[in-house]
Amino acid sequence: MDALVASRITKRYTNHLALDQINLTIPQQTIFGLLGPNGAGKTTFIRIINQIINADEGQISIFGERLQQKHIGSIGYLPEERGLYKKLKVGDQLIYLAQLKGLSRKEATEKSKTWIRKFQITDWWYKKVEDLSKGMAQKVQFISTVMHEPRLIILDEPFSGFDPVNAQLITQEILELKQKGCTIIFSTHRMETVEDLCDDIALIHKSKVILEGSKKKIKNTFRTNTYTVEHKGPLNSTAVFELVSQRNLEDTFYRSVIKMKQDLNPNQLIRELTEITEVHSFIEQVPSMSEIFISLVKGESHE
């Protein structure tokens, strides 16, 4: 059973089409990266999942059921535009937000105390949010997102505003939540996060999904058969590969970027290379998510 299946989601605003026939499948217990440039429609899509706005067409099912009011309690949402009540004390705030998610007062109090202890911030309980630093407030905000134990957690740019130490802490928590069975949707521009954490991704561009699948599979399709080789003595293009660039490192050592011409496997290429030169290192140039992102978005916008 998938955590979320969106089929033909369309949302139209007066002047433009925010989402155009979006189809997405988010498997359970994965970290799903929702990527896309600004204004692509990510936030609109997330708001539809959170039932803040309604889609004009299409439907969403969540854990096999059609999305309804009652699912509010099983979704945790950390919006990009986030904040807390400044004048409210941390404890009251957490209890209130959890109650709004459907927890009883007793449960809400217990859960928030557990999390406060876990993050070792018990002395903040009676502090007003306005007296906390930005990073501290972000921690409280993260607790409020996950404390009602949602099965689906949506994080919109979760690391903005976090210092590296806190970012590390939150990353740990996210991985732990995944271990426990949660599904996490990440909406972000930060490709290193995607690289590190995400299992599956979808790229939304100009209101459409232009790329979807597991990170590994996507990387495979975007392989360019390019390799970086360090070797002794200069190298020239052969029938098997084409020399893209070459740079002298020291003495007679060179670093070259080569591209396979024929449909060979890396072993065959190494065999070919060892015959003509002395190979010191051989690395396949796998495209980073960032490169894939840029090439797709740029390619689209040139059309």
Partner: peptide, 16 residues
């Protein structure tokens, strides 16, 4: 206005 400027509103409307 306070709810809106402190940005807490989007968190709230995802619950109510």
């Amino acid at each position: 206005i306070e709810e809106k400027t402190s940005k807490v509103v989007e968190v709230i409307v995802s619950s109510v």
